[in-house]
């Protein structure tokens, strides 16, 4: 309940499943990679972070679950509040933070084990032991990721034998199985064929009813198709953010206009 208390102090928008960022700065060595980021991400909707490559989109995403920690030579200052808890606070437990967020990376990284074990990996870590319960979880989330019908007869084969598109859906199922509030996607369709990409996008549109989804993408059309809210970044700064429609149709900033029209990319 301390979370609620903190919430009222910091920001009314920081409800459950939300991400609020205050004065976030990130340095790679001397390079200032993220400059004074201040933003609250809306819950239960899809936020897309767009911008030219190297603008800090992925860096920002990696701050949300502190994967940024494992980058060489990094300094982070400022606050990222998830459900009202500052995840960069010294007492914050990184494992607990990450459990609240599922991650889909640029290309799928199936764990070196069977399809079944991939999905059961998270729940097992977090204390689910009964075989029947695990079976249920695996089936449920594979269905959730629309993969069940394709793999139900070969759950014990190594996950690496699946096609890339199937692997990415497996990663989605695996991420959902730890019951996060938030789903993070780092250009999750960039390695996929158009049909698999479509699958993932459809899935996101269904999932946003229950989850807060943040997607980094460099495909403007993808942002147009799925995003409710848009953040445009350029050279480590947030240039503009707002409802997707507004940003795409009526960008205020010149750089956003140019990007949306395809002049800068």
């Amino acid at each position: 309940m301390t979370a609620k208390l903190k919430m009222s102090q910091s920001d009314a928008a920081c409800a459950e499943g939300s991400i609020c960022i205050n004065n976030l700065n990130v340095y790679y060595g001397d390079r200032h990679a993220l400059k004074n980021i201040n933003i609250n991400l809306p819950t239960r909707s899809i936020t897309a972070i767009i911008g030219p490559s190297g603008c800090g989109k992925t860096t920002l995403l990696k701050c949300f679950n502190r994967l940024i920690d494992s980058v060489d030579d990094i300094t982070v200052t400022g606050q990222v509040l998830v459900d009202g808890d500052d995840i960069f606070a010294p007492e914050a437990e990184v494992t607990d933070i990450r459990k609240r967020m599922g991650l889909l990376s640029q290309r799928p990284y199936p764990l070196p084990m069977s399809i079944y074990e991939n999905v059961a990996f998270g729940p097992k870590l977090h204390g689910v032991k009964e075989k029947s319960k695990l079976n249920e979880i695996v089936e449920h989330y594979l269905k959730e990721a629309s993969l069940w019908d394709e793999v139900k007869d070969r759950l014990n084969t190594p996950a690496s034998r699946l096609s890339i598109g199937q692997q990415q859906r497996l990663c989605l199922a695996r991420g959902l199985a730890v019951e996060p509030d938030i789903i993070l996607g780092d250009e999750p369709t960039s390695a996929l064929d158009p049909i698999s990409s479509h699958h993932i996008e459809q899935k996101f549109l269904e999932l946003k009813k229950e989850y807060t989804i943040v997607v980094v993408t460099h495909i403007l059309r993808q942002a147009r198709r799925i995003a409710d809210y848009l953040i445009f970044m350029y050279m480590g700064e947030i240039v503009e953010h707002g409802p997707a429609k507004e940003i795409l149709e009526n960008p205020k900033e010149k750089r956003t206009q140019e990007y949306v029209k395809g002049i800068i990319s």
């Binding site: 990184v94 991650l103 990376s105 290309r107 991420g175 730890v178």
Partner: peptide, 18 residues
């Protein structure tokens, strides 16, 4: 081992030891 695999494991809430 690709970095992404470590990130995948961490993002599921696994500790470094796990």
């Amino acid at each position: 081992i690709p970095k992404g695999l470590f990130e995948a494991s961490y993002s599921l809430g696994a500790t470094r030891f796990e």
